[in-house]
């Protein structure tokens, strides 16, 4: 040990540290292209949900009121044409999901996991380096501020600082006080994404959703540029909407599918097996 210098010791420390880091890198590889599977909620996710379809969602009366004032013509306004989905909804939308990592070149430690969904270029950064969330006054964005950690081989992500968005694209709102925990569970070439969305303004309890992706080994992603144009000339200040009680379409969904109107109006109880019996 006489010739064993501090420099040698530091070398061993570095080597040991590298060995220690290695298992973490092996936990789960999410990198690649993932195609969304539309075997669930296809009505909502491909053609788009019907007006007045709130089945099974734990919304409160304020959310229902906001949704009933929503007019789909809103989406024809230049200000709304290029909006991406918020991260609370984007994983249920259409479009290929690409996941990649940023690692420190010297240590190979994971710094960031990126998720990018093709439609409207929903790009999200998930910080894996242990940093804290910004203060409350920091800007809110469509994707929010996300930090991640591993539970076993499951990636768990906490998201705050979201812009006011939606939980279903038929006007059901989500406030800018909403937060999300989402989880990535991989089973071979199938990825199950879990989102747990909490919103003290519009939800009575957390909204838990699960949906699947299939690994696409030769996947590609095309750009999705969006440039707003004037589709309909409107009077200055005009915004499509319905005043409370004046939306003529809210009852159509339940009638079309022969469903109880009470079910279509949503609420946490409508997701429980005994809900239909409670109507009898």
């Amino acid at each position: 040990m006489r010739n064993f210098s501090s420099r040698n010791a530091l070398g061993i420390v570095a080597l040991a540290a590298a060995l220690w880091i290695a298992p973490a890198a092996a936990q789960l590889n999410l990198v690649g292209y993932w195609n969304p599977l539309f075997h669930e909620d296809v009505d909502e996710r491909i053609p788009g949900p019907s007006i007045g379809d709130y089945l099974g969602l734990p919304i409160n009366a304020a959310a229902r009121l906001r949704a009933e004032s929503w007019d789909a013509s809103l989406l024809s306004m230049p200000e709304h044409q290029c909006k991406p989905h918020p991260s609370t909804y984007g994983f249920r939308g259409v479009g290929v999901l690409r996941i990649w990592e940023d690692r420190d070149e010297s240590t190979q430690q994971l710094i960031t996991i990126h998720t990018h969904i093709a439609w409207q270029e929903q790009h999200r950064e998930i910080w894996m380096d242990g940093r804290a969330h910004p203060p409350e006054y920091a800007p809110h964005t469509w994707q929010g501020f996300s930090t991640g950690h591993w539970e076993g081989d499951v990636l768990v992500v906490e998201t705050t600082h979201l812009k006011a968005g939606w939980i279903r694209r038929n006007g059901l709102p989500l406030s800018d006080r909403a937060t999300m925990t989402d989880r990535f569970h991989r089973y071979g070439d199938v990825l199950t994404h879990v989102s747990i969305v909490s919103d003290p303004v519009y939800l009575t309890e957390p909204l838990v959703k699960t949906n699947g992706f299939m690994l696409s080994p030769n996947g590609t992603m095309t750009p999705y540029p969006c440039e707003p144009v004037v589709e309909i000339v409107r009077a200055p200040g005009a915004v499509p909407h319905y005043l409370p009680g004046q939306n003529p379409f809210t009852a159509d969904f339940a009638k079309t599918y022969g469903l109880p109107p009470e079910a279509a109006r949503g609420g946490a109880a409508t997701a429980l097996p005994e809900f239909l019996e409670s109507l009898r």
């Binding site: 469903l259 997701a271 429980l272």
Partner: peptide, 25 residues
């Protein structure tokens, strides 16, 4: 454990009409 049916509600909570097999390949 209790099923929380907030997905595919109209195919799971009630019996859908004959011939409605949307999203099943």
């Amino acid at each position: 454990w209790v099923a929380i049916v907030n997905e595919d509600w109209r195919w799971r909570m009630v019996t859908p009409p004959k011939g409605d097999y949307a999203s099943v390949p």
